[in-house]
Simulated scan of single mutants.
Amino acid sequence: MTDARTTQLADRLTAVHQRIAAACAAAHRPVDDVRLVVITKYFPATDLHRLADLGVIDIGESRDQEAAAKLAELPASVRERLRVHFIGQIQSNKARHIAAYADRVQSVDRAKVLAPLARGALERGRVLPIFLQVDLAGDDQGRGGVLPAKLPALAEAAATTEGLELVGLMAVAPLHADPAAAFERLASLSQQLRADHPGATLISAGMSGDLEQAVAAGATHLRVGSAILGDRPAPR
Results as ranks from 00 to 15, higher is better:
Pro174Asp: 08
Glu73Asp: 13
Arg81Pro: 02
Leu186Asn: 06
Glu162Val: 12
Gly142Ala: 08
Gln18Pro: 03
Ile87Leu: 11
Lys150Tyr: 12
Val34Gly: 10
Pro198Met: 10
Gly125Ala: 05
Ile130Ser: 00
Ser226Pro: 01
Ala72Ile: 01
Ile228Met: 03
Ala234Pro: 00
Tyr42Leu: 14
Leu51Thr: 07
Leu147Gly: 14
Gln133Arg: 14
Arg119Pro: 01
Lys150Trp: 09
Ala69His: 11
Ala23Gly: 11
Pro75His: 08
Val84Ala: 02
Arg104Pro: 00
Val127Ala: 13
Leu136Ala: 10
Thr7Tyr: 00
Arg232Trp: 06
Val224Tyr: 03
Gln18Ser: 14
Met170Ala: 06
Ala216His: 06
Gly55Cys: 07
Met207Arg: 07
Gly225Glu: 05
Glu123Met: 13
Val215Cys: 11
Asp53Asn: 09
Ala4Lys: 11
Tyr101Pro: 04
Val34Ile: 13
Gly209Phe: 02
Ser208Ala: 05
Lys112Phe: 05
Ala10Tyr: 00
Ala158His: 09
Arg63Met: 02
Ala155Asp: 14
Ile39Phe: 10
Pro75Ser: 10
Gln89Glu: 07
Ile90Tyr: 04
Met1Leu: 11
Glu156Met: 15
Phe86Tyr: 09
Glu66Val: 03
Ile57Arg: 09
Gln8Ala: 12
Ala118Phe: 03
Leu151Gln: 11
Val84Tyr: 01
Leu13Trp: 05
Arg232Cys: 08
Leu151Cys: 04
Asp64His: 14
Asn93Gly: 05
Arg110Cys: 06
Val37Glu: 01
Ala177Pro: 03
Val127Asp: 15
Ala10Asn: 07
Ser188Asp: 15
Ser204Glu: 02
Ser208His: 01
Lys94Met: 08
Leu166Ala: 01
Ala187Leu: 09
Ala149Asp: 15
Gln192Asp: 13
Ala22Phe: 04
Arg12Ile: 10
Ala137Gly: 15
Gln192Met: 08
Arg223Asp: 03
Arg232Phe: 06
Ala177Cys: 08
Phe183Gly: 05
Glu184His: 12
Asp58Trp: 04
Gly55Trp: 01
Phe131Ala: 01
Phe131Thr: 02
Pro129Met: 14
Asp196Lys: 14
Ala22Gln: 15
Gln141Asp: 14
Val113Phe: 10
Ala67Ile: 07
Leu164Gly: 06
Leu186Cys: 05
Val84Asp: 01
Phe86Met: 00
Asp58Glu: 12
Pro75Glu: 09
Val37Asp: 02
Glu165Ile: 06
Ile203Trp: 05
Asp47His: 12
Gly142Leu: 13
Pro198His: 11
Ala217Lys: 01
His221Gln: 10
Ile87Asn: 04
Leu147Lys: 15
Ser107Met: 05
Arg126Lys: 13
Leu202Val: 06
Pro116Thr: 07
